[in-house]
Computed example of a mutant assay.
Amino acid sequence: MLRIARLGLLLLVPTAGFAADCTQAPNQMEANACAAQSFAEADAELNRRYAALRDKLDGNGRQNLVAAQRAWIAFRDRECDLRTGYDATAPEANGTIMPLLQAACRTQLTRRRSDDLAAQIKCPGGDLACTP
């Protein structure tokens, strides 16, 4: 979780002091800021759906959801490292485009997870007969 918080800070730092026009990002710093904004929006939607599903589950279901979500976050972060070629041992070697690549990947995977949670809201608790 701490790693996620650090990434969030890294992605948001470039946004301080200016408002990026995300329809036309003329430089890397603004493009990174726009990607970070997209990720923040996707993450907020994921959190809303997570909370809605959690509220529908019993104690065992909530426990399973928490464990699954933690595992999914670790998967998402490593998958995006793999997809983008991120090098945690030499962060300075990743280049100025890396925040954009990481945010875009995390946005894509977060939206997919959000859709999965939305489907589970309609069919909670392992009802295999339910089709969302």
Rank of each mutant, 00 (worst) to 15 (best):
L101E: 07
F75K: 13
E92P: 03
L9H: 13
L57I: 04
T15V: 11
Y50T: 03
R3H: 12
L100K: 06
C80Y: 01
D115Q: 08
K56G: 00
L65S: 01
P124K: 01
A93Y: 03
L109C: 01
T131I: 09
C105H: 00
A119G: 03
V66L: 14
P124C: 06
N27R: 13
R3M: 13
R112D: 15
T131W: 05
T23K: 12
Y86L: 14
G95C: 00
F75A: 06
R83D: 09
A33N: 03
I121V: 08
A118T: 07
T131L: 07
Q28N: 09
L46H: 03
M98W: 05
D21H: 08
D127E: 04
L101V: 05
P91K: 09
A5C: 09
A19D: 11
A118G: 06
R111G: 03
P14T: 11
C130F: 02
A19Q: 13
L12K: 15
R83P: 01
M29D: 09
D21W: 10
C123N: 02
G17T: 14
G95V: 00
I97H: 08
N47E: 14
T89M: 11
K56Y: 05
R48C: 06
A74F: 11
G17V: 13
L10P: 04
A40Q: 06
D115P: 02
A42R: 02
R111A: 02
L11W: 04
Q37F: 09
A74D: 14
E30D: 15
R70M: 06
Q24D: 13
R76H: 12
R106A: 01
Y50H: 13
A19I: 13
G126I: 04
T15S: 15
R76I: 06
L100C: 01
A71H: 07
R112L: 14
E45T: 08
E92M: 11
L11S: 05
L100H: 03
D127K: 04
E92V: 09
P132G: 03
T96G: 10
Q24K: 12
D58N: 15
T110S: 03
R3P: 06
G17M: 12
L2H: 12
C130I: 05
Q28K: 09
A35I: 08
R83A: 13
P14R: 10
